[in-house]
Amino acid sequence: MTTLFHYLIFPGLLFALVVGMIASWIERKVTARVQWRVGPPMLQPLYDVMKLFIKENIVPEHAHYLTFAAAPLISFVSAGLAATIIGMSIFFPSSGFQGDLIVVAYLLVIPALSLILGAAASANPLASLGASREMKMVLSYELIFWIALIVAWIKTGGLLNLSLFAVNGAVGASVSGAIAFALMLITMQAKLGRVPFDAAEAETEISGGTYIEYSGPLLGFFKMSQYIMLVAVPALVSIIFLGGASIGKYVILLVLIILAENTNPRLKITQCLRLFWFFLLPVGLIAIILATLGY
């Protein structure tokens, strides 16, 4: 019962959702200020979701209904599970289990995966293009994500327990750790699907790509899992590289995401691949070598 409470209320679904909505509001407010606009009121993300839930659900004729409808839900619950495990390690450090880091890393792939499957099930050509790009995006950043984690493992002697990172001190404080942290920041941007890594959605080009056929409550679930991801991913990065999560550290990461989002143009998918595989990979390998040498 306690586990269920942790998952549904705190620090799981509901808590992560509320924090994510606030973060999303900050994101939109800062973006607005950068563009000399006033920006939305604080409850705007909540209004957005509520509006989606009273709207009609439109499902394409040739879509595979079950996959199409299940994808947003799966995305939502698995993002929530990842947020729960991360949150537990922050608020109840003794509750973790060995290897929870790997579990969280894999759970955080599921939202992207269900987005791809949902888009593929919609039988829409633009959605298929989006799905293909989303998958390539995952391939691009996943490589660098693991490299950054491996650096962290070398620095901490193979620490697999999220709650122990806080005890161990900041990984980002060493040379290799700093490089890995920088790589992780870029990865984080891509994992959250923020500009410049939003080729899979690309509203102006493939009009939403993966999201094109989603509307109403189903889109609402995707929106909510995005909010949760906006909390879970920076919190994870903060735990691993900054030695534990706190509100201050989270806000710094959030501001970095927002600034990068507002100052960069969208990259084409091949440019993303090249960036991650051919430019950041050697940097990452150097970081691993430095880490094994003790720097």
Binding site: F53, K55, E56, I58, V59, P60, P125, P217
Partner: peptide, 16 residues
């Protein structure tokens, strides 16, 4: 949540 929202579902052609 979905049920409570009472949203209706409609099938329509693909939008491109």
């Amino acid at each position: 949540l979905y049920w409570l929202s009472g949203a209706k579902t409609r099938r329509a052609g693909s939008f491109i």
